[in-house]
Design a protein around this nucleic acid. Sequence first.
RNA 1: GCGCCCGUAGCUCAGCGGGAUAGAGCAUCGGACUUCGGAUCCGAGGGUCGGGGGUUCGAAUCCCUCCGGGCGCGCCA
Length: 557
Amino acid sequence: MKERLRRLLVEAIAAAVKEGQLPGDAAGVEVYVERPPRSEMGDFSASVAMGLAKVARRPPIQVAEIILSHLPSDPVVEAAEIAPPGYINFRLGPRWLTDAVAECLTRGSDYGRSDWGAGRRVQVEFVSANPVGPIHIGNARGGPYGDVLASLLEATGHHVTREYYINDGPENTQIVVFGGSVQARYLQALGVEAALPEGGYQGEYVTELGQALAAEHGDRYRNVPQDEAGALLFFGLVRDRMIQVLQEDCDALGISFDVWFSEQGLYDSGAVEAVVKKLMDLGAAYERDGAVWLRSSAYGDDEDRVLVRQSGGPTYLASDAAYGLNKFLERGFDHVIYVWGPDHGGYVARLKAALAALGVEPERVEIIIYQIVRILRGGEPVRMSKRAGNAIWLRDIIEEAGRDAVRFFFLLRSVDAHLDFDLELATRQSEENPVYYVQYAHARTYGIQKEAAARGFPGPSTERLELLSHPAERDLMRYIADYPGLVSDAARQRAPHRLTHFALEMARAFHQFYDRCRVLDPANEELSAARLALVVATGQVLRNLLGLLGVSAPERM
RNA sequence: GCGCCCGUAGCUCAGCGGGAUAGAGCAUCGGACUUCGGAUCCGAGGGUCGGGGGUUCGAAUCCCUCCGGGCGCGCCA
């Protein structure tokens, strides 16, 4: 609807320019249509006239008058008025709302979907936590975010691949330390005196891994030296188990990845070596001090970065460049979104530099950094470190609060904002969690339908939707009408939190409607049928919303 | 020191393609139909939008600067 009004305005301005009433450069201005702050001001408004006042060298009100005099007629526009200091306010006929209800019922679960993505192939890579332990609350945030972002892109006509990058490469020091930790726990399980490596992983699950290895293999690996090679050997023994743990965690969150991509695979195929050579051939990398450097400073980074160490081992940047080449060149994604944690902020410039050096257009690379999650327990911050072993596992939180609440809670805030997750609040007060408010609204739409059937009311009908004229009905219908625009806005802005906020507002509009408008009125069957249609459409939109959020939409609670 | 993010009601946060009287939830206080689910609804109080400059007809929103908080600045990932 905004778009429809916007076109009317653009046409009107063009016509005015043609007749010489507005200067030529007026035709190029951006026109935005928005919601006025109060409903008495109309259904939609535009402030173009104020923006044009300067170039037109006329007062805004006059500009608005000129625009209005050229405004093409549209059956849905009941009135277009000018309000000081120069707003153009549109008052629309009831059809634009009731048509939305009808359209929602016709399109069902497709309502809100669009095709502006035109089938572009987009990859969203997220979570990608190192395979050295279960997902903890600190790196869990990317899960719901990436998953819902992917859903939003799907809903707007993109072809989306959800991908998890497994950092199981041999050059990953975390892998080495982790493997060494497993080895130490294995030896201890055999009764051998063994110390954890420097900065080793102290989590209980590591002890369990060691014990499991001892039970399975006995003392077969007892004499493996406690060095890097030994650590990697032990990592190899538990690698599949660790990936399985990560997959189970993602399952528990309701996330299903299309691709689990192994960094080790890039080494095995020679892709890492090849990309370094390619960068050298391109002149984007050079040797110095026995290391190979990426000329990243020529591509926007502060300084050049090491690709291959003096020791001969490639850095993470080298395998990431190879991975990028794989994404863009081999698999041909049009656009790639990386969802990273806050500790990766310093890495953005160098990855972009590497990809730019390889010829990937910068606009195809998008890196989103979400902000830190702070864990509180009753208001007190809880420190956590995977290595220290006092991490808070995602799985435990899900068990306590439930998947729906965890996802909804994580999606309540903008990615740019820090997120406080208070365990006590998420568990003790789980009944007051906002997710229940929305789910209850959805369940209520079912309750009403069931009651209608039980009492023998005729089913929902769109025949007399014009009977829906109560302010609460109009408010509610407005959410239904706005929903498709919300989905494309949220996708464009990479802002899943717009969905949770909209869901809460719409649920409130529905509860208000329920409170003020009796749906099932035996004395007025036509009105009842129309209201029932509104109830069904509301349930449909809530269900579509919750579907995008990956939160269940129960029929009763 | 440099880079990124944040600073809006007591608390947690929306709003930030500049626009009309700045919003919500929680918390506090006070209310609601003998009826479709009270996990609901209504009302009230509560604000120098961190401070200061600037751009503009108009700034929570854009620019500069200062203050406060978080994160990052490795031949770790």
